[in-house]
């Protein structure tokens, strides 16, 4: 499972203030803490606090690269901001993300190819958020078709079925889990699947428990990657245990420690 740490995001107060003063220590500490907790890659998002994401994104990339060579997941809805991040990146990258809209796909797929970046495709479009599994799969098919036509390697494509908060769209969660399973058989070779985990508990009071319960269900449905808070130890322990039960790692009494030694 590819674990992408979500904490370098301008919507958090510490990162917002680091962006304001260009204080790299805060960002670097946040990067290293997430890696120590088990993150395989780091999401990098300027967030709403950033006055000038075209400058802030490459700054974040540069200061993070000073302390780690882990892949960076460049997170913005604006292709221009992602492009600036890619230019600055020496580490491997993941573009986060394109929607299923032609005008975005036509910019971001060539960009991903040019920089040999992986690409996250979210199953939403300008028409709005899908309401059921079929709509999600239809949007996924559209992203896949564009990627195939452009010769983008499908194994580098991460499809996100767009997780909705349980207190907003409770009726959709089962559909989202089924979408994860079906995305794996939508093409050969299979695309990867990814979720932004914390969405599931957005606005809820008991967040960590909801997050880890949903993550277990998603992992059992075949999830390949998640953007999450790796510093939530119970969440990470749950993830490691779920993967153990699915025979992805060999059991031993100290399996949690064994996973972390990897």
């Amino acid at each position: 499972m590819l674990i992408i740490g979500e904490l370098i995001n301008g919507m958090y107060a510490n990162i917002a203030s680091a962006l304001k003063d260009h204080d790299k220590k805060i960002v670097q500490a946040c990067a290293l803490e997430q890696i120590a907790s088990g993150a395989d890659a780091l999401d990098v998002c300027c967030g709403p606090a950033s006055q000038n994401p075209l400058i802030d994104m490459p700054w974040l990339v540069e200061v993070i690269q000073e302390v780690t060579d882990k892949p960076l997941c460049l997170d913005s809805s604006k292709p221009k901001v992602i492009a600036e991040g890619l230019k600055a990146a020496k580490n491997k990258t993941i573009i986060n993300s394109t929607t299923a809209d032609a005008e975005k796909l036509e910019i971001l797929i060539p960009l991903a190819k040019k920089y040999k970046s992986k690409l996250i495709g979210i199953t939403i479009s300008a028409a709005g958020i899908p309401q059921n599994k079929d709509q999600r799969l239809e949007l996924a098919a559209m992203i896949l078709t564009h990627a195939t036509e452009e010769g983008f390697p499908i194994t580098d494509l991460y499809l996100d079925p767009i997780v909705m908060p349980v207190n907003v769209a409770q009726g959709q969660i089962r559909d989202i889990l089924e979408t994860i399973a079906e995305l794996k058989i939508i093409a050969q070779p299979s695309p990867k699947t990814i979720i932004g985990l914390s969405n599931i508990s957005q606005g809820a009071k008991v967040r960590s428990l909801i997050n880890r319960t949903f993550l277990t269900m998603a992992v059992a449905s075949g999830l390949d990657s998640a953007i999450l808070d790796p510093k939530d130890k119970e969440l990470m322990d749950t993830l490691i245990t779920a993967e153990l039960i699915l025979n992805k790692n060999i059991y031993c009494d100290s399996y949690l420690e064994a996973y972390r030694k990897k």
Binding site: I250, C252, D253, S254, E257, A258
Partner: peptide, 14 residues
Amino acid sequence: DINIAKQLNILISD
């Protein structure tokens, strides 16, 4: 026993 093989390697490396 593969589980014990793994466990023992961890105990030794600890």
